[in-house]
């Protein structure tokens, strides 16, 4: 794995906001087809970290490289599907049907002057099928429940046929059965299609078997290269106030 070019190469990343250190000196690499889970307490800086990976936030120090390039030189953004944390908080009166929203996932890959092609439509249809929202296609997003809306946002990310999925607590408010399906879908996307996944979640126990590595973020980062050896991870995580017993307990249920 060390021989392939990392998708993300993060070196000495720090983020300071009004003299308050949010993240300090974080370094890691993420390789193709890895499934990374990011955990950490509220306010620990997970969202901030991911926003820096995507160029939405400028680091105070350090550098993010993506496919070996600085963010401003990278021009293959269409490979990235991103579901932000606040995805369900949209203006309820926005004139968009569910289909309008999922179609957005194809926008950046269209050619000028062209409308949605047949393959675009197939991607959109498949993504909606995977998130089980086909029957909502013509509903206005403003009328959906929070969990339904969240599934629409995930479907939009999937519709872009991403090589890298970055998910910031995407399934908050999604019911238990759909969550289970969603985890199974992520596992399949990762194992079968080789999609790289960066998944911020508080629900680490359930996916512990699927992930390659676990990042614990609380101002600093602790990288667990082998999350299956839960004990050491647990010790490290608890140093930073993470309840890693969750991880432990879930393992024994299975």
């Amino acid at each position: 794995m060390k021989f392939s070019v990392p998708i993300f190469d993060v070196k000495n990343l720090s983020f300071v906001l009004k003299e308050q250190t949010i993240l300090s000196n974080i370094s890691f690499e993420i390789f193709p087809s890895e499934y990374i889970a990011i955990i950490g307490p509220n306010g620990g800086g997970k969202t901030t970290l991911v926003r820096m990976l995507l160029g939405l936030e400028k680091p105070t120090n350090g550098e993010v490289k993506i496919y070996g390039k600085g963010l401003s030189h990278f021009n293959e953004w269409y490979k990235i599907g991103y579901v932000p944390q606040r995805a369900s908080l949209v203006d309820g009166s926005f004139p968009a049907t569910v289909l309008d929203i999922v179609n957005m996932g194809r926008t950046s890959q269209r050619r000028l002057f062209s409308t949605l092609s047949k393959s675009d439509r197939t991607f959109v249809h498949d993504a909606m099928q995977k998130m089980d929202i086909l029957d909502l296609a013509d509903k206005m997003v403003g009328t959906l429940s929070g969990g339904q809306r969240q599934r629409v946002m995930i479907a939009r990310a999937l519709a872009s046929n991403p090589k890298i999925l970055i998910l910031d607590e995407p399934n908050t408010g999604v019911d238990a059965a759909s969550q289970k399906n969603f985890y199974a879908l992520l596992r399949e996307l990762n194992k079968k299609d080789g999609i790289t996944i960066v998944f911020i979640t508080h629900d680490i126990g359930v996916i512990a078997d699927d992930i390659a590595r676990l990042f614990t973020i609380n101002q600093k980062a602790i990288i667990c290269n082998n999350p299956k050896q839960t004990l050491s991870c647990e010790e490290m995580s608890s140093l930073y106030g993470i309840d890693a017993h969750l991880l432990h307990n879930h393992r024994h249920e299975h």
């Binding site: 160029g55 990235i80 949209v90 939009r156």
Partner: peptide, 19 residues
């Protein structure tokens, strides 16, 4: 129009998708 629409709905996701 499609790009303007996407940006109006969610500027940041539009940006990270390459628009």
């Amino acid at each position: 129009s499609k790009e303007f629409y996407f940006i109006a709905y969610d500027e940041e996701v539009a940006k990270t998708s390459g628009i």
